[in-house]
Write a protein that binds this DNA or RNA. Sequence first.
DNA 1: ATTTGTGCAAATCGTTTGCATCTGA
DNA 2: TCAGATGCAAACGATTTGCACAAAT
Lengths: 139, 139
Amino acid sequence: MREMQRQREVQDMLRTAGLRPTRQRVALAELLYSRGNRHISAELLHEEAEAADVPVSLATVYNTLHQFTEAGLLREVAVEGTKTYFDTNTDDHHHFFIEGDNRVIDVPGSGVSMTRLPEAPEGMEIVRVDVVIRLRRKD
Amino acid sequence: MREMQRQREVQDMLRTAGLRPTRQRVALAELLYSRGNRHISAELLHEEAEAADVPVSLATVYNTLHQFTEAGLLREVAVEGTKTYFDTNTDDHHHFFIEGDNRVIDVPGSGVSMTRLPEAPEGMEIVRVDVVIRLRRKD
DNA sequence: ATTTGTGCAAATCGTTTGCATCTGA
DNA sequence: TCAGATGCAAACGATTTGCACAAAT
């Protein structure tokens, strides 16, 4: 069935990234990548895993998210606040952040463009430019 | 002397913002605003206060920073990482973030400009746009 | 006098770490 | 076999909170 098919894909993805496809990693990867782009916190992913009958410790969820990030399968989103979000979309793109319900969503298409990026200071190079558009519910 | 002059200015600033000019708040405001624009963490401000012989508890530093922020005297800078930075420059401007030494600095002038800001999703309005340019030391 | 702010210590939250135990190649 | 992964619980750092005390109007 479809289930096994997806597992194999995920395993290959992990192997390609140089990560052993363990039970937990495969399960987490499936949760992450089987529903389009997501912006998820460690805690929420942990809950989803439990709900899906995949017992994983929170520590392992953190380890896994960081490994995926280093392997280029995820991207950390720098939003203010204490929580860290991981984005399954690693392409160059920007984010809306909804104050209040603390949700992160992608800016569709290339809705932002920058003209005149400033020069990096002496001896520095630009790693990435993050744009976060803070939103509030209109009342 | 100059010292008292500055105190009065700061007291007025606080009163105008609707905050009682208490000993601690005046002292913290002086530290914040007497040396040009700063990007400072609660912990560092606390240390500076101690060093300046103004005993303030860390809790009060946090309270004060948040009150100043609500009053529009400060702006929280959304950089990833656990620590929160407060910026004494509340104008519209963007930031460099130096990975490694976790420093935040202002992008000078209006070195960045955005064309085509995306529309806010239905029922939402844009509060602010934060741009963080991540830098790494060139090797 | 009344309201508002402060200090302290304990509590909380998200995240990381140490280490003994398991598991996949 | 055995390097590498996992789970657990304890450790951690930053921030917050509750409450008795102190200071500002």
